[in-house]
Write a protein that binds this DNA or RNA. Structure first.
Length: 286
DNA sequence: ACCGCACCCTGAGCGC
DNA sequence: TGCGCTCAGGGTGCGG
């Protein structure tokens, strides 16, 4: 689900619901791949704390607490952060399952926070458990964050060009490298390359400076547009208020294999690059 | 330093 | 209806 736009939409809708509120109780699911900090330790640390801020770094969220500790969150592929009771038109049972007195708690909801001032609480659900939660001590960094390149919302073509010179990978792979540019994922990489008329298979070194300048502009453009429309709700993403994003309706190539290119009517092609599906127009992108 | 690949996990959709 | 297969927007860790 979540690339930069979905994470940013999540942050913007969540922040007003969280900042300034005090955590009264915490419920964690069983220890799993999902918990980088053991759930019991996490629950103890969070209980009684007030949330001071919610920030985004690339596809990560950082929740700052009033004791100078913070919580690092990542949504993985299927993570959903939402306020309890949110009604999702597509995934109705999902958001309400735990609250609606359904038979037993939702086995995919791994973290639940209740607040001292009453409902709604916060829910973190993640079917595939590729998401992550980690408690950070005061001043403690995180190797994952340290490795991130500049944020993709301020993508810089000169930097992309520089980073591309010693790389032998396809340009698509370069765009997905979070150490080069933080926040671009599979959908927006394909879309930005289409907008820039660059074929995703082309070697990163074969892309010119001028093309990287255009590509950086289009990365910014497509990310901003997606944020405006609430992100892409293709399979799992719902916003914290339960609403669907709308950007999937504006996709030009992603998951449009066999459909006509909106510019030239050529059939969109799907191939695999670096174990990820990639989509492009063989006529518009060279 | 870089690259390709296996792997982490669960569910949906498809062909038979 | 059921089975087996493929696919899915994420990232890490390994060996070459």
């Amino acid at each position: 689900m979540p690339e930069l736009p979905e994470v940013e939409v999540t942050r913007r809708l969540l922040a007003p619901n969280l900042v300034g509120r005090r955590i009264e109780s915490v419920r964690c699911g069983p220890p799993s791949y999902f918990f980088l900090t053991p759930p019991r330790r996490l629950a103890t640390a969070l209980t009684g704390r007030e949330i001071r801020a919610l920030e985004r770094r690339g596809k990560y969220l950082l929740m700052a607490l009033d004791d100078e500790r913070s919580v690092l969150l990542h949504l993985g592929m299927t993570g959903q952060l939402f306020m309890a009771g949110a009604v999702s038109p597509r995934l109705m049972t999902l958001a309400n399952h735990a609250e609606a007195g359904a038979p037993g708690p939702d086995r995919h909801t791994h973290l639940e926070l209740e607040f001292a001032d009453g409902p709604p609480g916060l829910r973190f659900r993640d079917v595939r458990k590729f998401g992550k939660v980690r408690l950070l001590a005061p001043g403690q960094g995180d190797a994952r964050l340290d490795k991130l390149g500049p944020d993709a919302l301020s993508a810089d073509g000169e930097l992309l060009f520089e980073a591309s010179r010693q790389r032998s990978v396809p340009v698509k792979t370069l765009l997905l490298d979070q150490g080069v540019l933080a926040g671009v994922g599979n959908i927006y990489a394909d879309e930005a390359l289409f907008m820039s008329h660059i074929r995703p298979t082309r070697g990163a070194r074969r892309v010119t400076r001028k093309e990287y300048l255009l590509l950086a502009e289009n990365v910014q453009r497509v990310l901003r547009r997606s944020i405006e429309t609430g992100g892409s709700s293709i399979s799992d993403f719902i916003a914290p208020d339960g609403k669907d994003g709308q950007f999937q309706n504006e996709r030009q190539v992603y998951a449009r294999e066999g459909e006509a290119c909106g510019v030239c009517r050529t059939s969109i092609v799907r191939i695999v690059i670096g174990q990820r599906s990639s989509h492009y127009c063989p006529s518009c992108q060279r």
